[in-house]
Design a protein around this nucleic acid. Sequence first.
DNA 1: AACCAAAATTGACACATATCAATTCAAATC
DNA 2: GATTTGAATTGATATGTGTCAATTTTGGTT
Lengths: 233, 233
Amino acid sequence: MSEFFEKSPQSCHGCQCMSPLFSMLNKEELDLVDANKIHVNFKAGETIKKQGTFMSHVLSVNSGLAKLYIEGIEGRSAILRIVKPTSFIGGPGIYYDQRHHYTITALIDSSVCFINLQVFKGVLKGNQAFAEEFLKDFSRDVLTVYNRLIYLTQKQMPGRMADALLYLFDEIFLQPKFPMILSRFDLADLSAMSRESAVKILRDFQKEGLLKISDHEMEILDEEALRKISRIG
Amino acid sequence: MSEFFEKSPQSCHGCQCMSPLFSMLNKEELDLVDANKIHVNFKAGETIKKQGTFMSHVLSVNSGLAKLYIEGIEGRSAILRIVKPTSFIGGPGIYYDQRHHYTITALIDSSVCFINLQVFKGVLKGNQAFAEEFLKDFSRDVLTVYNRLIYLTQKQMPGRMADALLYLFDEIFLQPKFPMILSRFDLADLSAMSRESAVKILRDFQKEGLLKISDHEMEILDEEALRKISRIG
DNA sequence: AACCAAAATTGACACATATCAATTCAAATC
DNA sequence: GATTTGAATTGATATGTGTCAATTTTGGTT
């Protein structure tokens, strides 16, 4: 078997890479998941899931980082969120139409488990606590989209870019200095503007000393100023 | 008891006004819902539910029409959808934090049932088919928000307004001529623009013969042209 | 019918943003 | 190391959009 499509070398039992969601499962349930999952490694840039395809499996990101985005009009995309380990990815298609409603692309080399959807649904049915946790997870994702809708439609570019950067700080890297895994294009998709505008805003932020970008690294120098820009809009 | 706060005069059994979701319930479950619901009439303009408040109940709109919107930055709002009878309103707060994440305001006189949240959750737990249907409903709502996010961020004003009007046609009134229950302000909130811009776009549409607005009525005259504007963006 | 308050309308203007074309830079490939 | 490709950058320009202020219309109230 190739290294890019293989049965997970290790069992789900004791796996530190699985989404915390699965800690709600008992031994039998986890066995079932274990027996019906596929483990795949992706290289940076590869598409993990394509919008519109049939949802045969749900995903759990074990390691790496990925962008989750909706493909919109004329090639434009809206990044909904950055997916970090260890997180579960389902989406509204699970119960609506069994399709994926977004595309997921690896930003760095990533390892993902694909869990058979019917098995997953079966386990959900049988385990109330698991179902509740799943719904909580899903609901949190929905709320971030609400939030996104508001800030993307009601703030202007500097505020939107500040929000994007603070999102990376607060939710993904948890520290002011982090690797530049997102291209300017990606940052533009994350804040709903053109690449050129993204470049200009980032240049302005650097000129004002809020930000430093160098050697594949980005560092937030003045968090408070960024938060103020976010607030002002 | 006042007419604005009363136990529903009729039982849920045989009620034609309840969301189809509840048709999945058996007699005992419906009895439980019946015994734990409150029926309230609202006049046009009244707030049915306020964003941020504790979610003690979920809602079912029996008659009337309402706008469901997120209160955003500095008094601006984003209308997520128009609520028509007979539909269920829950939202991500049910499983996340038991709060309402949007405000609902009656556009015309409306009648709403409030169902105790704990009772509702209890019934959900006990009835798998009901739970599935609920999730399907919820997921559909989420998808409309995805859709909204894309068209609000990737189209410009004429496209956004065309989408808003076609939404009213396709999803709410199902006919080209309908009462003007939405103010220009509301139409602006539905298409993420200023009131003045909404007025101008609507004027343009009328000039081009796509639309007729008169006497509290709006009529879509050239549906195809509107769809084209929607497509072009 | 007259009045008032709110909503709708308008045009002028300023600002925000996208687009375009040209250039530089960086990384990957041979 | 030379070459090539794609990404990033830049400034000029055109367009889109919001804001403001003034006016008109509408609907409701007395």
